[in-house]
Simulated assay, not measured.
Amino acid sequence: MTPDHEITAKQAELDKLYDSFSAKYGLINSKGNRLAFSDDSSYYLLCSLEVLDDI
């Protein structure tokens, strides 16, 4: 079992990576990213992770 502090650290790292990506390319769910990832079968799974309620 992975310790909570390791999970929290990885979540913080992913949050920074997401913030960096979205600052440069916009939301994962944006039209431009949908076109860029059109050949990626996992794109919609990735979109499901993006929380849009706060926007």
Rank of each mutant, 00 (worst) to 15 (best):
S48K: 08
F21H: 00
V51C: 08
M1N: 10
L14T: 04
A9N: 06
S20K: 14
H5F: 09
D54S: 11
P3L: 05
L27R: 13
G26C: 01
Y18I: 09
S38Y: 02
P3R: 05
D53Q: 12
A9W: 07
K16G: 07
E50M: 02
T2F: 14
G26I: 01
I55W: 02
D40M: 08
E6G: 04
S38C: 14
D54A: 12
R34G: 10
K24R: 03
F37G: 02
E50N: 01
M1L: 11
L17A: 15
S30D: 01
L49N: 13
S48Q: 04
C47D: 07
K24W: 01
I7H: 03
M1G: 12
I7P: 02
A36E: 03
A36T: 07
Y25R: 08
G32Q: 10
L46Q: 07
S30C: 02
A12S: 10
S42R: 15
L27P: 06
K24C: 00
K31G: 06
N29A: 10
Q11A: 15
V51F: 08
D4Y: 14
L46M: 14
N33E: 01
Y44D: 15
A9H: 13
L27K: 14
M1F: 05
S30F: 00
D19Q: 12
D15L: 09
R34D: 06
H5V: 13
L52M: 10
S41G: 03
I28A: 05
D54C: 12
S30P: 01
D15R: 11
G26V: 00
D53Y: 02
D40Y: 04
T8D: 14
E6T: 13
K24V: 00
L27M: 08
A9E: 10
I28Q: 02
E50Y: 01
S38H: 04
D39G: 14
S41T: 04
N33C: 01
Y18L: 10
L17G: 07
L17Q: 11
N29E: 09
Q11N: 06
S20V: 04
K31I: 07
L49H: 08
Y18G: 06
S22W: 09
Y18Q: 13
L46W: 05
L46T: 05
T8P: 12
R34H: 08
S20M: 08
S48I: 04
Y43Q: 15
L49E: 10
D15Y: 15
S20G: 07
S22M: 04
